[in-house]
Amino acid sequence: MLVAKNIVKFLGGKIILQGLNFCLKKGEIIALLGPNGAGKTTLMRCLACFYTPDGGEITWNGKNLSSERNAFFKVLAYVPETGGLYPDMSVYEYMEFMAKIKHLKPQQFVDNLLYLLKTLDLESVINQPCKTLSKGYKKRVVLAGALLSRPKILILDEPTEGLDPQQKLGLRSFLKQYSHDSIVLISTHIMEEVEASADRVLVMKDGRLVCDTTPEELKKIVPDNNIESSFCTIIGG
């Protein structure tokens, strides 16, 4: 269980996160929604321990992240919105690097990589340098790299951005399956995706959490049962 208590973060002299409280449980896909500049990426980076919160604390199974950082990194994977690949590396070299940096055992690396190559359909590009890949492939390679260690917490910033509809469907079903014994936190603008895959929705506005509910409940906020209208209502659009 990942618990955030009163998270505060300043960046460039501005307050970005203003005392966020929530709890993420295993088996859930949580969608993080919010307008541009709401603080979604900053929150994700705080949860991924890339940023250290200036106030409050984040705990994983009761243990504070700032003191158990390295142990936490072993169960965490974070995929940024863009990039995340070393352009001159081949896909195989990238995977090898990620395995080494995640301290995977050779057999673990082989098993997981084979599984991910097949699942994410990356076999054909294994020897290709990352810079020559299409946007969709790049996204999948970063995701494969993140999933190599079978993390318990998966934080994905705009995971379906740039994917074609078929790939989006594939990813959604993969995440659904993956979330059975993990926490999956995704940030997105696409309401259709929230409806299709999220078990829970966190809506942020100006660094505050304004709504913590399920997609079904979110829809009910407006009379026409439209999730987009509900979202707009919450954020005051």
Binding site: S90, V91, Y92, E93, V110, L117, E123, I126, N127
Partner: peptide
């Protein structure tokens, strides 16, 4: 060498 290794892996 790396490419061969990757091919064999697949």
């Amino acid at each position: 060498y790396i490419q061969r290794k990757a091919k064999e892996f697949v």
